[in-house]
Design a protein around this nucleic acid. Sequence first.
DNA 1: CCAACAGACGCTATATGGTT
DNA 2: AACCATATAGCGTCTGTTGG
Length: 216
Amino acid sequence: MAPVGKGENDVKIMEAQGTGGSDKTVMAPPSKASRSHSEAERKRRQRINGHLATLRTLLPSASRMDKAALLGEVVRHVRELRCKADDMTVGVLVPSECDEVGVEEGRDNFIGDEAATSRVKASVCCADRPGLMGDLGRAVRSARARAVRAEMATVGGRMRSVVEVEMVEVTGDQGKADGRLGRLELQSSLRTVLFNRDGVGILAENYKRPRLSSRQ
DNA sequence: CCAACAGACGCTATATGGTT
DNA sequence: AACCATATAGCGTCTGTTGG
């Protein structure tokens, strides 16, 4: 089913026929470069169509769709799968793809009417590595906090740890202000653990997609 | 630095199958 | 039969890579 017309032999060479001579159009054989270019282009299309065919096998409902509809269906399907995956991991300790640090307020412990200590839940997600837990422990202590409970999960070289820490001496208005400062300090210390390792840590909120070439 | 090359992409012409 | 949407194929051009 090779279309003809603007095909590979459609090279016109105008030959001068001298005075009063008419133009003569002859078909020149395709050059070696032209043949290889066409061949490369054919292979490229085969690759594209091969992958599209694979997508059709993965989405049986897409067997009678054209290419544009197929791609649209694939996009919809991937989004649906992502939502399902998110739903399944709600409340479950599973590392994500982004490096992140979270610190959320917990409950206070009271002595009489005064809060004496404050519980804080700190979570860290990053690539797992030797010594990481030790670094996190030091980060907690450097924020004048004490870890009282910790959970950790690793999946595929990624790690998520949720540590419940106790911030000390939270009493009165000044204590509450100190508590806020303490949480910020803790967050900062934990971020340092992520960033100070060869400078490769990427926090979710700071993540920028790599620049692509202008020809996209 | 530059030429040669490969890969990607847009454009155009043509083929094909479905619909009116 | 005419028309339309889609697929296919080749070519021109641009861009990134590589070797001299």
